[in-house]
Amino acid sequence: MQPFALEQGRDIADTIRRGRMPGTDYIAGGTDLVQLLKDDVRRPRRLVDLEGLDLDQITVTPQGLRLGAMTRMSEVADHPAVIRDYPVISQALLASAAPQIRNLGTIGGNLLQRTRCTYFRDTASPCNKRSPGTGCAAIEGVHRTHAIFGGSRQCIATHASDLAVALVALDAVVHLSGPNGARDVRLTELHLMPNDHPDIETVLHPGELILAVSVPAGAWTRRSSYLKVRDRASFEFALTSAAVALDIQDGKIRAARVAAGGVGTKPWRLPAVEQALVGAPATTATWQRGGRLATAGAMPLRDNRFKVRLLRATVTRALEQVGGEA
């Protein structure tokens, strides 16, 4: 770990003033950043601590759910209103990491966690995301866990967050504050595909800070679920996952929200699946059709080809779990 200064702002404005300085990283829960520092993947000169900024409220209103960026993953997962009205969020969080990490990790930090691509985290390996222009070691290397959606010739690293998959499905919006003021960004727009610049992962400006995430209420949020498939029974990132929320009335699907994890270079919403579901009967055939449509456009490589079948099965199963067997 290279040396850095550790600072704390007086308030949000002061924090952002510090955060916009070159070479500065914010530190929230630190569960990912501290790993990156130890592995020498990040070399900030300064860390600005976000603890104590009063960004840890959970607010539930008829309009929706608002999660402060510094809310701990475990608090959100255990919140009765989240469990009742937004089960997919609670489930995605409980499927993440381990209890100890969820007690540290924050909602904002979770959304901005870096990829688990092992080449990215090993400074002796080429990686365009970590060291632009050095090449992607994964494309012709060991890439069983890598993305089948959204990859480029420069990068196929999977976005690792489970929470982001659930939130992307539920049309979440992130509330930002930065040197140029406040703005809201849809979570689907927050993360960027790697294209030619895998090192640039989000639309955030230097110093811009996530203050909170909002999830609009909808008839579908209560009937929602997160399914995660992995080699080990727990404490592992997803091979594939699916977040599903359905509004079903009289056996017919009125609205559908579906996203996939473990498969995309960013949290992967599946609009084609949603479109096919709306208006369809809540039947096994529909769920299977949804599963089949989930992998349209997938671009697997040698070792992650299995994710195509696996994602179909994952989405089908998740739809069935939420929508019921018929």
Binding site: T118, Y119, D122, A124, S125, A137, E140, G141, V142
Partner: peptide, 10 residues
């Protein structure tokens, strides 16, 4: 890694 001989999941 088949090219570098580096353990990728260390």
């Amino acid at each position: 890694d088949p090219r570098s001989g580096r353990v990728t999941n260390a």
